[in-house]
Design a protein around this nucleic acid. Structure first.
Lengths: 190, 190
DNA sequence: ACCTGAACACCGTTCAAGT
DNA sequence: ACCTGAACACCGTTCAAGT
C-alpha cells in the first residue's frame, strides 16, 4: 500500500523542523513555516494554537525518533552489550541533532498531550532496557525505575556537557564522551 | 570610602538581570531595559553591541557570582568537607537562580571577552579546590585539571537534571540531588 | 475542514542628529 | 561620553471573511 500522503499539519511540522535545525527555536517563525509550505502566514493557526504548541509537537515527534534510534543501536547486540550500545546511540543522536536535542529537553514548548505521551513511551523503553540488563547481570538488582533514572541522568548529562563544551581542554586532550559513558558502572541504588 | 556610583552601563546590566529572572532571555528586551533605567530604547546600543552582547555581559557577572557563592560555601569547613560543601553550593545557586544558571551555560550569548575571562577564573577556582582536596586525601591523585573537569561535569549534570525534572518520579519519591552529589566518589581518572 | 488579508502590539537594529 | 527620535524590517497573534 502507498504511503499515506502527508497532511497539511505534517507539512508544517516538517518545515518547522527544518527551520529548527537551521537556527534553533528562534529561527522557527510561523510566518516562514507557512511560506515554506505554500500557505499564508496565518494558516498555521488552523493547526496549532501557538508557536509553543507547534514546537511541542515537533519535540514529541523527535523524542519518539530518539527512542527509535536508541533501540536500533541496541539491536543485534549480545545481551550484555545492549545497554552500553543504547547509551552510545543516545549520545550520537544528541550530537548529530543538537537543536532537536535541546528542544526536546528544553523550555521552548508548552504542556502538550503529544509530548507527555512521548515522554511516557521513552521512559517505558528505557525501563525495559534496564530490566533486561539486570536479568543478564549487566546491572545490579534493585528498582528498575530508579536505576533507569540514574542511567538516563548519566547519559543525558554527558550529552549536555559535550554540547556546552565542558569536556574540552584548552591545552590538553578533550574528555571523550564515549569513554565517560562506557565508564558507567552503577553501584547499589538503595 | 563610599561605593563607586553605578555607571549607566551597570544600571543596564542590573535591569537586564531583573528581566532575565522574571521571564528568561526572551523577556529581556533592549527597549524595556532602556525604559527601566530611564533612558530611551536605543540608548543601550551606546554600551552594548547587541542584545546577545548585553546578555554575555550579564552571564560573565553571574558566573563570577556563582564562583563567589561556591567559595563561600566551602569557607569555614574542615579541609575534608570543603569540596562537598562547594558542590552543594553550586547546586543551591543553580536552583535559586534557574534563569541565570541557564544563561551562563546556555546558548544565548555571544563570544565576549568578559565571559571568556569569567570562565577562566571559574575554572582556576575549581582546580584550586580540587588540588586542595587531593592534598588532604579527599580525592585520588592525578591531573587536577582533569579531575576538576570530572567534578564540574558531575555537579553540573545533577543541576541540569534537577532543573529539567529528570529526578522526579511520578508515583515514587524523587531522587535527591544532594544525595547524588554526596555520592560522588571518583575512581582513578586515567 | 481549511485558508486569506488586514490589523495590532510588539521586537532588534541603524542612523542622522543632538548635548 | 552619552543620549534621542524616526525609521526599517521583522515578529506572534487575532479576527472577520471567504471556499
Amino acid at each position: 500500500m502507498p504511503e499515506a500522503s502527508p497532511t497539511p499539519r505534517d507539512l508544517l511540522v516538517v518545515a518547522a523542523t527544518r527551520l529548527l535545525d537551521d537556527g534553533g527555536p528562534q529561527n522557527v517563525t510561523l510566518r516562514e513555516v507557512g511560506r515554506l509550505t505554500g500557505v499564508s502566514r496565518t494558516a498555521p493557526y488552523r493547526h496549532f494554537a501557538s508557536k509553543a504548541d507547534l514546537l511541542a509537537t515537533v519535540a514529541a515527534g523527535e523524542l519518539d525518533r530518539l527512542v527509535d534510534a536508541v533501540e536500533r543501536s541496541a539491536d543485534d547486540r549480545d545481551p550484555a552489550a545492549r545497554l552500553d550500545a543504547a547509551m552510545l546511540g543516545y549520545l550520537r543522536w544528541a550530537r548529530e541533532r543538537p537543536e532537536r536535542f535541546r528542544l526536546v529537553f528544553g523550555h521552548w514548548t508548552e504542556e502538550n498531550d503529544d509530548l507527555r505521551q512521548a515522554a511516557a513511551r521513552a521512559n517505558r523503553a528505557l525501563v525495559d532496557l534496564v530490566g533486561e540488563a539486570q536479568s543478564v547481570g549487566g546491572l545490579p538488582t534493585g528498582d528498575p525505575w530508579r536505576l533507569a533514572a540514574a542511567v538516563r541522568a548519566f547519559v543525558h548529562v554527558i550529552a549536555v556537557l559535550e554540547q556546552n563544551g565542558h569536556l574540552l581542554g584548552r591545552d590538553r586532550a578533550p574528555l571523550s564522551a564515549e569513554d565517560l559513558v562506557r565508564s558507567f558502572r552503577p553501584g547499589a541504588t538503595g
